[in-house]
Design a binder for these strands. Structure first.
Length: 494
RNA sequence: CGGGGUAUAGCGCAGUUGGUAGCGCGCGCCGUUCGGGACGGCGAGGUCGUGGGUUCAAGUCCCGCUACCCCGACCA
Protein backbone atom coordinates (compact mmCIF):
# COMPACT_ATOMS: atom_id res chain seq x y z
CA UNK A 1 0.00 0.00 0.00
CA UNK A 2 2.66 2.46 0.96
CA UNK A 3 5.07 1.35 -1.73
CA UNK A 4 6.91 4.02 -3.58
CA UNK A 5 4.53 5.40 -6.12
CA UNK A 6 7.20 7.10 -8.12
CA UNK A 7 9.12 4.39 -9.85
CA UNK A 8 11.58 4.23 -12.67
CA UNK A 9 8.81 3.38 -15.06
CA UNK A 10 6.25 5.93 -14.18
CA UNK A 11 4.06 7.42 -11.62
CA UNK A 12 1.01 6.33 -9.75
CA UNK A 13 -2.05 7.61 -11.48
CA UNK A 14 -5.25 9.12 -10.38
CA UNK A 15 -7.40 6.08 -9.77
CA UNK A 16 -5.29 5.41 -6.69
CA UNK A 17 -4.83 7.98 -4.04
CA UNK A 18 -4.30 11.60 -4.83
CA UNK A 19 -2.34 12.25 -1.70
CA UNK A 20 0.40 9.96 -2.96
CA UNK A 21 0.42 12.00 -6.05
CA UNK A 22 1.14 15.12 -4.08
CA UNK A 23 3.82 13.55 -1.96
CA UNK A 24 5.74 11.85 -4.69
CA UNK A 25 5.03 13.84 -7.78
CA UNK A 26 4.29 17.28 -6.65
CA UNK A 27 7.34 17.97 -4.56
CA UNK A 28 5.25 20.64 -2.97
CA UNK A 29 3.98 18.94 0.11
CA UNK A 30 5.08 16.55 2.75
CA UNK A 31 3.55 15.28 5.92
CA UNK A 32 5.39 15.58 9.15
CA UNK A 33 6.06 11.96 10.03
CA UNK A 34 7.09 10.05 13.11
CA UNK A 35 5.75 12.63 15.46
CA UNK A 36 2.46 13.60 16.91
CA UNK A 37 2.36 16.46 14.45
CA UNK A 38 0.13 14.55 12.09
CA UNK A 39 -1.56 15.71 8.99
CA UNK A 40 0.29 18.98 8.68
CA UNK A 41 1.86 20.21 5.50
CA UNK A 42 5.39 21.12 4.75
CA UNK A 43 5.05 23.27 1.69
CA UNK A 44 8.25 23.17 -0.29
CA UNK A 45 9.49 26.29 -2.09
CA UNK A 46 8.00 25.30 -5.41
CA UNK A 47 4.58 24.76 -3.89
CA UNK A 48 4.85 27.92 -1.87
CA UNK A 49 5.70 29.93 -4.96
CA UNK A 50 2.39 28.75 -6.31
CA UNK A 51 0.63 29.93 -3.19
CA UNK A 52 2.39 33.30 -3.44
CA UNK A 53 1.12 33.69 -6.98
CA UNK A 54 -2.38 32.85 -5.85
CA UNK A 55 -2.10 35.40 -3.04
CA UNK A 56 -0.79 38.10 -5.31
CA UNK A 57 -3.55 37.79 -7.88
CA UNK A 58 -6.41 37.34 -5.43
CA UNK A 59 -5.19 40.17 -3.25
CA UNK A 60 -5.22 42.54 -6.20
CA UNK A 61 -8.78 41.46 -6.97
CA UNK A 62 -9.86 42.06 -3.39
CA UNK A 63 -8.35 45.52 -3.42
CA UNK A 64 -10.25 46.34 -6.59
CA UNK A 65 -13.37 45.85 -4.49
CA UNK A 66 -12.06 48.09 -1.66
CA UNK A 67 -11.09 45.27 0.66
CA UNK A 68 -7.99 45.94 2.79
CA UNK A 69 -5.73 43.57 4.71
CA UNK A 70 -5.26 43.35 8.47
CA UNK A 71 -4.22 40.77 11.05
CA UNK A 72 -6.02 39.33 14.06
CA UNK A 73 -4.72 37.02 16.81
CA UNK A 74 -4.30 33.28 16.36
CA UNK A 75 -5.66 32.67 19.89
CA UNK A 76 -9.33 32.98 20.59
CA UNK A 77 -10.72 32.96 24.14
CA UNK A 78 -13.00 29.98 24.58
CA UNK A 79 -15.85 32.20 25.72
CA UNK A 80 -15.92 33.95 22.34
CA UNK A 81 -16.84 30.67 20.74
CA UNK A 82 -19.60 30.03 23.17
CA UNK A 83 -21.46 33.14 22.09
CA UNK A 84 -22.74 31.83 18.76
CA UNK A 85 -24.55 28.56 19.42
CA UNK A 86 -24.53 27.02 15.96
CA UNK A 87 -20.95 28.05 15.37
CA UNK A 88 -19.59 26.54 18.57
CA UNK A 89 -21.49 23.33 18.07
CA UNK A 90 -19.81 22.71 14.78
CA UNK A 91 -16.27 23.81 15.50
CA UNK A 92 -16.05 22.39 19.02
CA UNK A 93 -15.35 18.99 17.48
CA UNK A 94 -12.12 20.06 15.86
CA UNK A 95 -10.36 22.57 18.04
CA UNK A 96 -6.81 22.71 19.35
CA UNK A 97 -7.01 24.07 22.88
CA UNK A 98 -4.23 25.90 24.71
CA UNK A 99 -4.57 25.35 28.44
CA UNK A 100 -1.12 26.21 29.88
CA UNK A 101 1.42 28.92 29.38
CA UNK A 102 4.68 27.26 30.39
CA UNK A 103 6.52 23.99 31.00
CA UNK A 104 8.18 22.80 34.16
CA UNK A 105 11.07 20.37 34.32
CA UNK A 106 10.45 17.41 36.57
CA UNK A 107 13.95 16.55 37.86
CA UNK A 108 12.87 13.02 38.76
CA UNK A 109 11.79 12.01 35.27
CA UNK A 110 13.62 14.62 33.20
CA UNK A 111 10.37 15.38 31.48
CA UNK A 112 8.71 18.69 30.87
CA UNK A 113 5.20 19.02 32.21
CA UNK A 114 2.68 21.72 31.43
CA UNK A 115 2.40 24.27 34.20
CA UNK A 116 0.78 27.60 34.71
CA UNK A 117 -2.78 26.74 33.75
CA UNK A 118 -4.65 29.49 31.94
CA UNK A 119 -7.61 31.02 33.63
CA UNK A 120 -9.49 30.71 30.38
CA UNK A 121 -8.39 28.23 27.69
CA UNK A 122 -7.50 29.66 24.30
CA UNK A 123 -8.59 28.12 21.04
CA UNK A 124 -6.21 28.10 18.13
CA UNK A 125 -8.35 29.71 15.44
CA UNK A 126 -10.25 27.25 13.24
CA UNK A 127 -11.72 30.39 11.61
CA UNK A 128 -11.75 33.92 12.92
CA UNK A 129 -15.32 35.19 12.91
CA UNK A 130 -15.53 35.38 16.68
CA UNK A 131 -12.32 37.20 17.44
CA UNK A 132 -12.71 39.58 14.54
CA UNK A 133 -16.29 40.46 15.37
CA UNK A 134 -15.40 41.07 18.98
CA UNK A 135 -13.01 43.70 17.63
CA UNK A 136 -15.58 44.99 15.19
CA UNK A 137 -17.96 45.65 18.06
CA UNK A 138 -15.53 48.37 19.19
CA UNK A 139 -14.63 49.58 15.70
CA UNK A 140 -18.17 50.08 14.52
CA UNK A 141 -20.05 52.93 16.18
CA UNK A 142 -21.69 54.86 13.37
CA UNK A 143 -23.13 54.17 9.94
CA UNK A 144 -20.15 56.26 8.81
CA UNK A 145 -17.85 53.40 9.88
CA UNK A 146 -19.52 51.10 7.38
CA UNK A 147 -18.94 49.20 5.28
CA UNK A 148 -15.99 47.59 6.99
CA UNK A 149 -14.13 45.47 4.43
CA UNK A 150 -11.21 43.52 5.82
CA UNK A 151 -9.29 40.44 4.79
CA UNK A 152 -6.47 38.48 6.40
CA UNK A 153 -3.99 35.92 5.05
CA UNK A 154 -3.28 33.50 7.87
CA UNK A 155 -2.91 29.91 8.97
CA UNK A 156 -5.71 28.12 10.77
CA UNK A 157 -6.00 24.83 12.63
CA UNK A 158 -8.78 22.28 12.49
CA UNK A 159 -8.09 19.11 14.41
CA UNK A 160 -9.39 16.70 11.81
CA UNK A 161 -9.58 13.00 12.52
CA UNK A 162 -8.57 12.05 9.03
CA UNK A 163 -6.37 14.27 6.97
CA UNK A 164 -5.53 14.39 3.32
CA UNK A 165 -2.65 16.38 1.87
CA UNK A 166 -3.75 19.78 0.62
CA UNK A 167 -7.43 18.87 0.78
CA UNK A 168 -7.86 18.45 4.50
CA UNK A 169 -4.82 19.17 6.63
CA UNK A 170 -4.85 20.02 10.31
CA UNK A 171 -3.14 23.32 9.70
CA UNK A 172 -3.63 25.20 6.48
CA UNK A 173 -3.14 28.58 4.92
CA UNK A 174 -6.03 30.65 3.71
CA UNK A 175 -7.47 34.07 3.38
CA UNK A 176 -10.61 35.04 5.24
CA UNK A 177 -12.51 38.18 4.43
CA UNK A 178 -14.86 39.68 6.99
CA UNK A 179 -17.19 42.49 6.11
CA UNK A 180 -19.83 44.46 7.99
CA UNK A 181 -22.59 46.45 6.31
CA UNK A 182 -25.41 48.78 7.18
CA UNK A 183 -28.02 46.91 5.20
CA UNK A 184 -29.01 43.37 4.41
CA UNK A 185 -28.96 44.05 0.70
CA UNK A 186 -25.44 45.39 0.77
CA UNK A 187 -24.19 42.33 2.65
CA UNK A 188 -25.98 40.00 0.26
CA UNK A 189 -24.44 41.78 -2.69
CA UNK A 190 -21.00 41.50 -1.14
CA UNK A 191 -21.37 37.77 -0.45
CA UNK A 192 -22.34 37.22 -4.06
CA UNK A 193 -19.65 39.56 -5.37
CA UNK A 194 -16.91 37.64 -3.58
CA UNK A 195 -18.01 34.21 -4.72
CA UNK A 196 -17.93 35.59 -8.24
CA UNK A 197 -14.40 36.90 -7.64
CA UNK A 198 -13.47 33.34 -6.73
CA UNK A 199 -15.16 31.96 -9.81
CA UNK A 200 -13.33 34.44 -12.00
CA UNK A 201 -10.01 33.61 -10.39
CA UNK A 202 -10.47 29.85 -10.53
CA UNK A 203 -11.57 29.86 -14.14
CA UNK A 204 -9.32 32.51 -15.61
CA UNK A 205 -6.14 31.84 -13.67
CA UNK A 206 -6.27 28.30 -12.34
CA UNK A 207 -8.13 27.14 -15.44
CA UNK A 208 -10.61 25.30 -13.22
CA UNK A 209 -14.20 25.51 -14.38
CA UNK A 210 -16.52 25.77 -11.39
CA UNK A 211 -20.18 25.78 -10.57
CA UNK A 212 -21.18 28.77 -8.50
CA UNK A 213 -24.27 28.51 -6.40
CA UNK A 214 -25.85 28.26 -3.03
CA UNK A 215 -25.49 25.60 -0.34
CA UNK A 216 -28.45 23.90 1.24
CA UNK A 217 -29.29 24.49 4.90
CA UNK A 218 -27.59 21.25 5.83
CA UNK A 219 -24.38 22.18 4.06
CA UNK A 220 -24.12 25.83 4.99
CA UNK A 221 -21.52 27.38 7.28
CA UNK A 222 -22.32 27.04 10.97
CA UNK A 223 -23.68 30.39 12.02
CA UNK A 224 -24.53 31.75 8.58
CA UNK A 225 -27.90 32.63 7.10
CA UNK A 226 -26.75 30.98 3.92
CA UNK A 227 -23.57 30.00 2.13
CA UNK A 228 -22.54 30.57 -1.47
CA UNK A 229 -19.84 28.43 -2.99
CA UNK A 230 -17.85 27.41 -6.00
CA UNK A 231 -17.58 23.70 -6.67
CA UNK A 232 -15.01 22.16 -8.99
CA UNK A 233 -14.97 18.69 -10.49
CA UNK A 234 -11.86 16.58 -10.19
CA UNK A 235 -10.83 14.17 -12.92
CA UNK A 236 -12.37 11.27 -11.07
CA UNK A 237 -15.75 12.98 -11.01
CA UNK A 238 -15.69 13.89 -7.35
CA UNK A 239 -16.50 17.40 -6.25
CA UNK A 240 -14.16 19.75 -4.47
CA UNK A 241 -15.43 22.82 -2.69
CA UNK A 242 -13.02 25.45 -3.89
CA UNK A 243 -14.28 28.50 -2.08
CA UNK A 244 -17.13 29.77 0.03
CA UNK A 245 -18.79 33.07 0.78
CA UNK A 246 -21.18 33.30 3.70
CA UNK A 247 -24.06 35.65 4.25
CA UNK A 248 -23.93 35.82 8.01
CA UNK A 249 -26.99 37.99 8.41
CA UNK A 250 -27.05 39.52 11.87
CA UNK A 251 -26.30 36.32 13.74
CA UNK A 252 -22.77 37.18 14.79
CA UNK A 253 -23.61 40.87 15.07
CA UNK A 254 -26.13 40.01 17.76
CA UNK A 255 -23.81 37.60 19.55
CA UNK A 256 -20.91 40.07 19.55
CA UNK A 257 -22.94 43.22 19.72
CA UNK A 258 -21.67 44.76 16.52
CA UNK A 259 -24.06 47.67 16.20
CA UNK A 260 -24.18 51.27 15.04
CA UNK A 261 -26.34 54.36 15.03
CA UNK A 262 -27.95 54.96 11.66
CA UNK A 263 -28.79 58.29 10.03
CA UNK A 264 -31.92 58.53 12.13
CA UNK A 265 -30.02 57.90 15.35
CA UNK A 266 -31.45 54.44 15.77
CA UNK A 267 -29.30 51.53 16.94
CA UNK A 268 -28.95 48.78 14.34
CA UNK A 269 -27.02 45.55 14.14
CA UNK A 270 -24.66 45.23 11.19
CA UNK A 271 -25.12 42.72 8.41
CA UNK A 272 -22.03 40.61 7.83
CA UNK A 273 -20.28 38.35 5.36
CA UNK A 274 -17.22 36.14 5.51
CA UNK A 275 -15.50 34.39 2.65
CA UNK A 276 -12.38 32.34 2.11
CA UNK A 277 -10.21 30.15 -0.03
CA UNK A 278 -7.33 28.02 1.16
CA UNK A 279 -4.31 25.99 0.13
CA UNK A 280 -6.90 23.38 -0.74
CA UNK A 281 -7.10 25.18 -4.07
CA UNK A 282 -3.61 23.91 -4.81
CA UNK A 283 -4.89 20.40 -4.30
CA UNK A 284 -7.75 21.15 -6.63
CA UNK A 285 -5.41 22.60 -9.20
CA UNK A 286 -3.26 19.50 -9.22
CA UNK A 287 -6.19 17.12 -9.32
CA UNK A 288 -7.83 19.04 -12.13
CA UNK A 289 -4.90 19.22 -14.52
CA UNK A 290 -2.45 16.51 -13.47
CA UNK A 291 -1.67 13.52 -15.64
CA UNK A 292 0.45 10.40 -15.36
CA UNK A 293 3.64 12.42 -15.63
CA UNK A 294 2.74 14.71 -12.77
CA UNK A 295 1.36 18.18 -12.38
CA UNK A 296 0.48 20.66 -15.06
CA UNK A 297 0.62 24.32 -14.10
CA UNK A 298 -1.60 26.78 -15.89
CA UNK A 299 0.80 29.41 -17.25
CA UNK A 300 -0.91 32.30 -15.49
CA UNK A 301 -0.04 31.00 -12.04
CA UNK A 302 2.94 28.76 -12.81
CA UNK A 303 5.95 29.43 -10.59
CA UNK A 304 8.00 28.74 -13.70
CA UNK A 305 6.50 29.25 -17.15
CA UNK A 306 9.29 28.12 -19.45
CA UNK A 307 12.38 26.07 -18.74
CA UNK A 308 15.27 26.10 -21.18
CA UNK A 309 16.82 22.65 -21.06
CA UNK A 310 20.35 22.55 -22.41
CA UNK A 311 21.56 19.43 -24.18
CA UNK A 312 25.25 18.73 -24.50
CA UNK A 313 27.81 15.94 -24.61
CA UNK A 314 31.03 17.84 -24.14
CA UNK A 315 32.38 20.90 -22.37
CA UNK A 316 32.39 22.88 -25.61
CA UNK A 317 28.81 21.96 -26.33
CA UNK A 318 27.84 22.82 -22.79
CA UNK A 319 29.39 26.25 -23.08
CA UNK A 320 27.72 26.80 -26.43
CA UNK A 321 24.23 25.71 -25.41
CA UNK A 322 24.24 27.30 -21.96
CA UNK A 323 25.33 30.63 -23.42
CA UNK A 324 22.62 30.49 -26.05
CA UNK A 325 19.99 29.44 -23.50
CA UNK A 326 20.93 32.21 -21.09
CA UNK A 327 20.65 34.79 -23.80
CA UNK A 328 17.19 33.53 -24.70
CA UNK A 329 16.16 33.41 -21.06
CA UNK A 330 17.12 37.06 -20.65
CA UNK A 331 15.03 37.98 -23.66
CA UNK A 332 12.06 36.09 -22.26
CA UNK A 333 12.42 37.55 -18.79
CA UNK A 334 12.62 41.05 -20.23
CA UNK A 335 9.30 40.33 -21.92
CA UNK A 336 7.72 39.18 -18.66
CA UNK A 337 7.99 35.42 -19.08
CA UNK A 338 9.16 33.52 -16.00
CA UNK A 339 12.02 31.51 -17.47
CA UNK A 340 14.95 29.50 -16.18
CA UNK A 341 17.93 27.72 -17.69
CA UNK A 342 18.60 24.15 -16.67
CA UNK A 343 22.32 23.72 -17.30
CA UNK A 344 22.94 20.80 -15.00
CA UNK A 345 25.25 17.97 -16.01
CA UNK A 346 22.44 15.50 -16.34
CA UNK A 347 21.18 13.49 -19.23
CA UNK A 348 18.40 15.28 -21.10
CA UNK A 349 15.81 12.70 -20.11
CA UNK A 350 16.44 13.30 -16.43
CA UNK A 351 15.85 17.01 -16.85
CA UNK A 352 12.74 16.52 -18.97
CA UNK A 353 11.12 14.25 -16.41
CA UNK A 354 11.82 16.54 -13.53
CA UNK A 355 10.24 19.59 -15.14
CA UNK A 356 7.33 17.59 -16.45
CA UNK A 357 6.71 16.33 -12.95
CA UNK A 358 6.64 19.88 -11.69
CA UNK A 359 4.26 20.86 -14.43
CA UNK A 360 6.25 23.60 -16.12
CA UNK A 361 3.98 24.50 -19.05
CA UNK A 362 6.66 24.95 -21.68
CA UNK A 363 10.01 23.26 -22.23
CA UNK A 364 12.47 24.82 -24.63
CA UNK A 365 15.19 22.45 -25.73
CA UNK A 366 18.52 24.00 -26.60
CA UNK A 367 21.02 21.55 -28.08
CA UNK A 368 24.04 22.01 -30.34
CA UNK A 369 21.92 21.40 -33.43
CA UNK A 370 19.44 24.05 -32.34
CA UNK A 371 22.15 26.59 -31.65
CA UNK A 372 23.54 25.96 -35.15
CA UNK A 373 20.13 26.47 -36.69
CA UNK A 374 19.27 29.45 -34.45
CA UNK A 375 16.20 27.72 -33.09
CA UNK A 376 14.76 25.98 -30.06
CA UNK A 377 12.37 23.07 -29.83
CA UNK A 378 9.33 23.97 -27.77
CA UNK A 379 7.42 21.16 -26.09
CA UNK A 380 4.04 21.80 -24.51
CA UNK A 381 3.39 20.15 -21.18
CA UNK A 382 -0.37 19.94 -21.71
CA UNK A 383 -0.41 17.88 -24.91
CA UNK A 384 3.23 17.07 -25.66
CA UNK A 385 3.20 18.85 -29.01
CA UNK A 386 6.55 19.93 -30.32
CA UNK A 387 7.30 23.00 -32.38
CA UNK A 388 10.46 24.50 -33.79
CA UNK A 389 10.82 28.17 -32.95
CA UNK A 390 13.35 30.51 -34.54
CA UNK A 391 15.24 32.49 -31.90
CA UNK A 392 14.21 35.76 -33.51
CA UNK A 393 10.58 35.23 -32.72
CA UNK A 394 10.96 33.37 -29.47
CA UNK A 395 9.21 35.94 -27.28
CA UNK A 396 6.20 36.15 -29.53
CA UNK A 397 5.91 32.39 -29.99
CA UNK A 398 6.43 31.54 -26.34
CA UNK A 399 3.74 33.98 -25.27
CA UNK A 400 1.41 32.57 -27.86
CA UNK A 401 2.05 29.03 -26.71
CA UNK A 402 1.54 29.93 -23.05
CA UNK A 403 -1.78 31.52 -23.88
CA UNK A 404 -2.78 28.49 -25.86
CA UNK A 405 -1.85 26.15 -23.00
CA UNK A 406 -3.83 28.24 -20.53
CA UNK A 407 -6.88 28.04 -22.76
CA UNK A 408 -6.48 24.38 -23.55
CA UNK A 409 -6.27 23.44 -19.87
CA UNK A 410 -9.51 25.23 -19.14
CA UNK A 411 -11.29 23.82 -22.19
CA UNK A 412 -10.17 20.33 -21.36
CA UNK A 413 -11.33 20.58 -17.75
CA UNK A 414 -14.65 22.06 -18.82
CA UNK A 415 -15.15 19.29 -21.34
CA UNK A 416 -14.52 16.75 -18.61
CA UNK A 417 -16.96 18.48 -16.31
CA UNK A 418 -19.71 18.61 -18.91
CA UNK A 419 -19.13 15.03 -20.01
CA UNK A 420 -19.45 13.89 -16.41
CA UNK A 421 -22.55 15.83 -15.48
CA UNK A 422 -25.77 13.91 -15.91
CA UNK A 423 -29.40 14.73 -15.50
CA UNK A 424 -31.13 11.89 -13.70
CA UNK A 425 -34.75 11.79 -12.59
CA UNK A 426 -34.98 8.31 -11.17
CA UNK A 427 -33.53 7.44 -7.79
CA UNK A 428 -32.57 3.88 -8.67
CA UNK A 429 -30.72 5.12 -11.75
CA UNK A 430 -29.12 7.75 -9.54
CA UNK A 431 -27.83 5.07 -7.17
CA UNK A 432 -26.67 2.86 -10.01
CA UNK A 433 -24.76 5.72 -11.59
CA UNK A 434 -22.88 6.45 -8.39
CA UNK A 435 -22.01 2.82 -7.96
CA UNK A 436 -20.53 2.74 -11.45
CA UNK A 437 -18.56 5.96 -11.31
CA UNK A 438 -18.53 9.38 -9.73
CA UNK A 439 -20.20 12.17 -11.66
CA UNK A 440 -22.12 15.34 -10.98
CA UNK A 441 -25.80 14.52 -11.05
CA UNK A 442 -28.36 17.18 -11.74
CA UNK A 443 -31.64 16.13 -10.16
CA UNK A 444 -34.85 17.44 -8.73
CA UNK A 445 -35.10 17.81 -4.99
CA UNK A 446 -38.09 18.92 -2.99
CA UNK A 447 -36.09 21.04 -0.59
CA UNK A 448 -36.53 18.92 2.51
CA UNK A 449 -33.58 18.16 4.73
CA UNK A 450 -34.97 14.69 5.22
CA UNK A 451 -34.71 13.67 1.57
CA UNK A 452 -31.28 15.24 1.38
CA UNK A 453 -30.10 13.28 4.41
CA UNK A 454 -31.51 10.04 3.06
CA UNK A 455 -29.62 10.44 -0.19
CA UNK A 456 -26.42 11.18 1.68
CA UNK A 457 -26.94 8.17 3.89
CA UNK A 458 -27.66 5.82 1.04
CA UNK A 459 -25.26 7.06 -1.62
CA UNK A 460 -22.73 9.31 0.16
CA UNK A 461 -23.59 11.98 -2.39
CA UNK A 462 -24.40 15.43 -1.08
CA UNK A 463 -25.98 18.46 -2.65
CA UNK A 464 -22.95 20.45 -3.75
CA UNK A 465 -24.87 23.50 -4.74
CA UNK A 466 -28.00 25.01 -6.14
CA UNK A 467 -26.46 26.75 -9.14
CA UNK A 468 -26.96 30.45 -9.81
CA UNK A 469 -28.96 31.15 -12.95
CA UNK A 470 -30.61 27.78 -12.59
CA UNK A 471 -33.41 27.52 -15.09
CA UNK A 472 -36.85 27.08 -13.59
CA UNK A 473 -38.02 23.58 -14.38
CA UNK A 474 -40.82 21.66 -12.78
CA UNK A 475 -40.09 18.13 -11.68
CA UNK A 476 -40.42 15.60 -8.92
CA UNK A 477 -38.10 14.98 -5.99
CA UNK A 478 -35.86 11.96 -6.44
CA UNK A 479 -36.83 10.51 -3.09
CA UNK A 480 -40.31 11.58 -2.09
CA UNK A 481 -41.74 12.51 -5.50
CA UNK A 482 -43.06 15.84 -4.33
CA UNK A 483 -42.96 18.90 -6.53
CA UNK A 484 -39.62 20.58 -7.25
CA UNK A 485 -39.05 23.81 -9.12
CA UNK A 486 -35.42 23.36 -10.06
CA UNK A 487 -32.56 20.90 -10.27
CA UNK A 488 -29.66 20.80 -7.83
CA UNK A 489 -26.19 19.30 -8.21
CA UNK A 490 -25.40 16.10 -6.34
CA UNK A 491 -21.94 14.56 -6.08
CA UNK A 492 -19.58 12.78 -3.80
CA UNK A 493 -17.15 15.25 -2.39
CA UNK A 494 -13.59 15.29 -1.16
C1' C B 1 -13.36 5.48 21.06
C1' G B 2 -13.91 0.06 18.34
C1' G B 3 -11.14 -3.38 14.81
C1' G B 4 -6.47 -4.47 12.17
C1' G B 5 -1.31 -3.36 11.18
C1' U B 6 3.62 -1.17 11.47
C1' A B 7 8.30 0.78 13.85
C1' U B 8 15.74 -1.68 11.05
C1' A B 9 20.60 3.79 6.77
C1' G B 10 17.94 10.11 3.99
C1' C B 11 13.51 7.23 1.47
C1' G B 12 11.30 2.26 0.49
C1' C B 13 12.13 -2.51 2.43
C1' A B 14 14.48 -7.70 3.66
C1' G B 15 16.48 -10.10 7.88
C1' U B 16 15.58 -18.02 8.26
C1' U B 17 15.44 -22.66 14.11
C1' G B 18 18.42 -16.41 18.58
C1' G B 19 25.12 -16.06 16.84
C1' U B 20 26.45 -9.22 16.59
C1' A B 21 22.77 -6.25 10.10
C1' G B 22 21.69 -6.47 4.35
C1' C B 23 19.10 -4.93 -0.52
C1' G B 24 17.04 -1.12 -3.94
C1' C B 25 16.79 4.06 -4.62
C1' G B 26 19.27 8.35 -3.18
C1' C B 27 24.16 10.58 -1.75
C1' G B 28 30.04 11.36 -2.66
C1' C B 29 34.43 10.34 -5.88
C1' C B 30 36.55 8.25 -10.61
C1' G B 31 35.84 6.52 -15.60
C1' U B 32 32.87 5.46 -19.95
C1' U B 33 28.41 7.98 -21.64
C1' C B 34 24.91 12.05 -23.10
C1' G B 35 18.55 14.78 -28.50
C1' G B 36 13.57 10.85 -23.28
C1' G B 37 14.61 8.26 -16.51
C1' A B 38 22.68 5.30 -18.73
C1' C B 39 26.53 1.87 -17.03
C1' G B 40 30.94 0.11 -14.29
C1' G B 41 34.23 0.64 -10.07
C1' C B 42 35.13 2.58 -5.25
C1' G B 43 33.01 4.91 -0.87
C1' A B 44 30.13 7.37 3.22
C1' G B 45 25.88 6.38 6.10
C1' G B 46 22.45 2.20 11.33
C1' U B 47 23.04 2.87 19.92
C1' C B 48 17.40 -2.05 14.78
C1' G B 49 10.97 3.28 18.29
C1' U B 50 11.43 2.95 23.84
C1' G B 51 11.84 0.58 28.96
C1' G B 52 12.34 -4.02 31.25
C1' G B 53 12.92 -9.54 31.13
C1' U B 54 14.83 -14.60 29.39
C1' U B 55 19.84 -16.15 27.49
C1' C B 56 26.79 -17.32 27.16
C1' A B 57 24.45 -14.42 23.11
C1' A B 58 18.30 -10.64 21.25
C1' G B 59 16.67 -6.84 15.16
C1' U B 60 14.80 -11.91 16.19
C1' C B 61 11.65 -14.75 22.10
C1' C B 62 8.42 -12.60 26.46
C1' C B 63 6.07 -8.26 29.12
C1' G B 64 5.15 -2.96 29.41
C1' C B 65 5.14 1.86 27.06
C1' U B 66 5.13 5.36 22.95
C1' A B 67 4.32 6.83 18.06
C1' C B 68 2.42 6.33 13.32
C1' C B 69 -0.65 3.97 9.33
C1' C B 70 -5.29 1.56 7.51
C1' C B 71 -10.77 0.53 8.20
C1' G B 72 -15.06 2.53 11.08
C1' A B 73 -17.55 6.89 13.58
C1' C B 74 -16.32 12.39 12.21
C1' C B 75 -15.13 16.12 8.32
C1' A B 76 -19.34 24.43 6.35
Amino acid sequence: MSNQSETKKGITTREEDYSKWYLDVVEAADLAENSSVRGCMVIKPYGYALWENIQKILDAKFKETDVVNAYFPIFIPKSFFEREAEHVEHFAKECAVVTHHRLELDPATGKLNPAGPLEEPLIVRPTSETIIYDTYSRWVQSYRDLPLLINQWVNIVRWEMRTRVFLRTMEFLWQEGHTAHASRQEAEDRAKQMVLVYKDFLENYLAMPVLAGRKTEAEKFAGADYTLCVEAMMQDGKALQAGTSHMLGQNFAKSFNVSFLDEKGERQFVWQTSWGVSTRMIGGLIMTHGDDKGMIMPPKIAPLQAVLVTIFASEEEKKLTVEAAKELAEKLKAAGVIAKVDDRDERPGVKYFEWEKKGVPLRLEVGPKDVAKKQVIAVRRDNGEKAVIGVDEIVKQVKKLLESIQKNLFDRALKNQLANTKEIDDYSKFKKQLEENDVFISSHWCGSAQCEAQIKEETKATIRCIPFNNKAEKGKCLVCGQESKERVIFAKAY
